[in-house]
Amino acid sequence: MSTNSEVLPANMCTRLSRRLMPLLLAMLLFVLYIATQAVLKCQASNQPHGTLGIRRLRGIYGNEVIRKLGGISVNEVIEEKSVTTSSKRLKAFLVILIPTGPKYVWRRNTLRETWFKLADENVIQRFVIGMKSLDKNATDLLVEENKEHGDLVFLWDFSDSYGGLAAKVLKTFQWLDENVDFQYVLKTDDDTFVRTELLQKELKERDVQTKLFWGFFSGKSPVHKEGIYEEKDWFLCDTYLPYAFGGGYILSADLAHFIARNAHWLKPYKSEDVSMGAWLSPLDVFRVHDPRFNSEHESRGCMDDYLINHKVYDEGMKAQYKQVIETGRLCPKEVLKRRSYIYNWNVPPSQCCNRSWGII
């Protein structure tokens, strides 16, 4: 049986423990909070930041979420991951990407011998080839070609075909996004003559450095229902959405990054230029229609003011290069075969593009 002297200290100890327990628990929680904040701050300081200032929203994953469908800003795209510029192998002011077929080595050599030489060290020029379905002999030849010239991009998991050109452009932009720190990209064809030196000059002088989509636009092209351009999946409207012809168009880096990082959400249609117009249609984009881009599927001729001249082959390519080097002009003889137009952005697309003489 306990005495009163033994009971008193026990009661005091119990009361003291009850008073100190909440204080000790609070101190423990405070220490844990401080430690957690320190870890999060350290992680944030080491987190790579994207080149576009694209932000991530807590609790939302993936890069498919867009704020405004009527005219979204590229800076409002939420992306899952970003690539630091320091991790990229190449750097250029302008990147020129040319999808080409494996067998068209003569076209590639013609470009190497002509307008490729107009570029300076601020320009990267690359041919892009799908490699998946090629046999060993064709693969070996392309590898040897690249050893000699160093200007081929191999898409090892892609098979080249006309119907797959839009998907090829998506994969090409993904390669660009992952490997090059750049400001502008020109997508063009292997039968196009490019005044690279003039494009560089104008891009450097332009006030618009972001959201730029520069080319020769159409807004009332009918949807093809037969032939090689047959489009079975187009149901958006009676005509194609406004797009820049694929003989050559320029995008600023932010738009190219948007395409690359959202590729898994973008529908590839039969024509890559039509597809690009559809992909960029909901964005807040600065579209510049320029008649100096002779980039349609049928050439309008040759004028000295052209920056892009589509449907030029071998001897014509060499003749134009010789003219540029010797005189600074493009054409051995200026000629207009078809009428051109100035795009009217103030009317519906069906009324956009009225051709007339007097425009290059």
Rank of each mutant, 00 (worst) to 15 (best):
V77F: 13
D160T: 11
G227K: 04
N346Q: 12
I359L: 14
I325N: 12
L57N: 00
L32P: 00
A244K: 10
D207G: 10
R107G: 09
Y313H: 14
L255I: 05
D273H: 14
L8G: 00
I96L: 05
I60E: 15
K103N: 14
V180Q: 04
Y61E: 10
E76R: 07
A260T: 08
G248C: 03
C331E: 03
S17A: 07
I228R: 03
L57C: 00
R126L: 11
M131Y: 08
K171D: 05
I124R: 14
R107I: 01
D304W: 03
R292Y: 10
W234E: 08
R89K: 15
D135R: 02
T192N: 06
A10Y: 09
F158I: 06
L170Y: 07
G62L: 01
T196A: 08
E296V: 08
K103G: 15
D284N: 15
G219Q: 11
H310Y: 08
N46R: 10
F258M: 07
E79P: 02
F293I: 13
P268M: 12
I325Q: 14
K270H: 08
T196Y: 04
F235E: 10
L141F: 05
V324K: 00
Q47F: 14
Y243R: 04
V288E: 11
Q43K: 14
N137Y: 05
Y104A: 02
K225Y: 04
R126A: 14
D233T: 04
K41T: 03
L52H: 12
N344M: 07
R300A: 11
P22F: 01
A26N: 11
L23F: 08
A119S: 13
M1Y: 05
K103E: 15
S281V: 11
G247Y: 01
A10F: 12
R355Y: 12
L155N: 02
L330A: 09
V185P: 09
F216I: 02
K81F: 07
V74N: 05
A260W: 02
S87I: 11
L266C: 13
V95Y: 07
E148Q: 11
L94Y: 04
K132T: 01
P348D: 02
F158G: 09
W175T: 00
K322G: 02
E226F: 03
N294P: 12
K333E: 15
F173W: 01
V285R: 06
R108L: 10
I78A: 14
K201A: 09
L165G: 07
P102G: 00
H257T: 15
S281H: 15
N146D: 13
H149G: 05
V153L: 11
S281W: 12
D254C: 08
T210D: 07
P332Y: 09
Y184L: 01
A26T: 10
Y341T: 12
R339F: 12
I98K: 12
K311F: 07
D135C: 01
P102N: 01
F193K: 03
A138M: 03
I250T: 03
S356D: 10
T196D: 08
C352F: 09
R355M: 10
H310A: 11
N344C: 08
E231G: 01
D157G: 00
S218T: 13
D314R: 14
A38P: 03
S82G: 13
E76W: 13
M1W: 06
K136M: 01
F173T: 02
A92D: 06
V208W: 00
S86M: 06
